[in-house]
């Protein structure tokens, strides 16, 4: 039984499916996330696929600030993902609200509404850093 559990959790690290949610990003970080899928970085080498469907995803990548409008959507997406799942917050905005943190509509970082496992800093975060963050998160799956 323990052997099977170990085997399955090893497979989890070999096939992480991503869901990318643009919370309120300036699109800087989104472009860097998508850059990971291009032939230059080709994350499919590690079995990583951008699925775009919370029901299929293992990892939630969130870019941008959370505001009062989209926090409902973010919580909804998080709840729709089957366990086990991890959340990676990307960019200064995802971490703390970034330059938008004082705006009247902004709640703050992603961890204000859902639990975050990995924080990837940068404005925008580099693709290498994003891949690094996902890999760091895999150990928690």
């Amino acid at each position: 039984m323990i052997g099977i559990k170990k085997f399955i959790s090893k497979m989890r690290t070999k096939s992480p499916w991503l869901l990318h949610f643009d919370c309120g990003s300036c699109n800087g970080c989104d472009i860097e996330v998508l850059a990971c899928l291009t032939p230059v970085y080709d994350v499919e080498r590690f079995g990583i696929i951008n699925v775009g469907n919370p029901m299929h995803a293992d990892i939630l990548l969130v870019t941008g600030t959370v505001n009062h409008r989209n926090k409902v959507v973010l919580i909804n997406l998080f709840n729709q993902m089957p366990d086990p799942k991890i959340v990676v917050a990307i960019g200064a905005c995802g971490l703390s609200g970034g330059i938008f943190r004082d705006a009247y509509n902004v709640v703050g970082g992603v961890d204000k509404v859902i639990p975050v496992d990995v924080y990837v800093p940068g404005c925008p975060a580099k693709p290498e850093a994003i891949i690094d963050g996902v890999v760091a998160g895999l150990s928690k799956l």
């Binding site: 497979m11 096939s15 080709d42 499919e44």
Partner: peptide, 28 residues
């Protein structure tokens, strides 16, 4: 398919990794 798009592509056993992982996920 990955080679056609000038990418390296996933390992040969990737479909099996995916399916075994799916069996380990929560039933929803």
């Amino acid at each position: 398919t990955a080679r056609f798009q000038s990418r390296v592509g996933p390992p040969l056993l990737q479909p099996f990794y995916d399916v075994i992982k799916l069996f380990g996920k929560e039933k929803v």
